[in-house]
């Protein structure tokens, strides 16, 4: 039980990782990220309904996520960043609302099961019950995060990405377009969201309300770990997932959300830059 909770926590970590990607380049995050997860999951489900094979559905769903990420960047973030305002907070919330309402009307308000080709029988691994599905979650999360990290370290474009997050002006002086890099980060963040949706849907279900449940936990993970902490999110995600299963077991499922929220507020009170985050220096 704790282990499967921890594996769920990996999905929160994956979504939180998406926040880190955009925060690194633009100091902004998408408050409608949960809706991106949900919409991509629904879209992937529709792809299956239209008869697309399972292995083709995944890249299809991911592409959809990238597209949504780019739309968010263009419509909700870019103008606010140009004006150096924090308008993007409100704008991405608005985008989420629009996405939620559209999903409700296009795909219906009810939760729907997401088919999977993996067997559902639990396996015994070191005396712990794990389903193949849960293992697929872990593999999926680590693959995506690993590939993106590899991209950031091993390609010049990836290094440019890091340069923009280190010093935006200096990166521009090297010929790196900050605008494009921010677009890239939103695209990647959309991809990560879609992956999270595809991974988690077979375990939970797909429904419009999955967005708000996921996003709050992902926020908690991101803030507790620090928005610039890299792999800290994985650790925090696992801990939070495990804590959640414990709370819902001992206090009742209604309290499921509570540990994440309490953790978040505590983290903000004690270490506002996150457990793994760096302090910022004020400049005049």
């Amino acid at each position: 039980m704790v282990v499967s909770g921890a594996l769920m926590g990996l999905v929160y970590a994956l979504i939180a990782y998406g926040f880190q990607l955009t925060f690194a380049t633009s100091k902004s995050i998408n408050f409608g990220q949960g809706e991106l997860v949900m919409l991509s999951a629904f879209f992937s489900l529709s792809l299956l309904d239209w008869g697309m094979p399972y292995w083709l559905m995944i890249p299809g769903g991911l592409l959809f996520g990238v597209a949504l990420g780019l739309v968010v960047e263009r419509t909700c973030v870019r103008l606010a960043l140009e004006q150096k305002s924090e308008g993007w907070i409100l704008m991405t919330i608005i985008f989420g609302l629009l996405g939620f309402s559209s999903a409700e009307n296009i795909w219906g308000r009810d939760d729907r099961p997401f088919p999977t080709s993996l067997p559902t029988d639990a396996l015994q691994v070191f005396g712990v019950n794990i389903t193949p599905l849960e293992i697929s979650v872990a593999i999926g999360v680590f693959t995506v995060m690993g590939l993106i990290e590899l991209f950031k370290r091993k390609t010049l474009l990836g290094k440019a990405f890091e340069a923009v997050s280190a010093d935006r002006d200096a990166a521009e002086l090297m010929g790196v377009s900050a605008t494009r890099t921010i677009m890239l980060s939103y695209g990647l963040s959309g991809l990560v969201a879609a992956m999270a949706g595809i991974l988690i849907s077979p375990i939970t279900t797909v429904g419009p309300t999955m967005a708000s449940a996921l996003i709050l936990k992902a926020f908690s993970v991101a803030v507790v770990a620090g928005l610039d902490s890299g792999f800290g999110v994985v650790l925090v995600g696992i801990v939070l997932g495990a804590l959640e299963s414990l709370t819902s077991f001992y206090l009742g499922s209604g309290w499921r959300e509570a540990p994440g929220l309490v953790l978040l507020i505590l983290a903000l009170a004690i270490r506002p830059n996150g457990v793994f985050g760096k302090a910022t220096i004020r400049k005049v």
């Binding site: 010049l156 290094k159 440019a160 890091e162 340069a163 280190a166 010093d167 002006d169 200096a170 990166a171 002086l173 090297m174 790196v176």
Partner: peptide, 14 residues
């Protein structure tokens, strides 16, 4: 304005 977190060589490559 060097890129502080990046290595010297990465700075040059950029």
């Amino acid at each position: 304005k060097v890129f502080g977190p990046l290595s010297v060589e990465d700075n040059l490559l950029l």
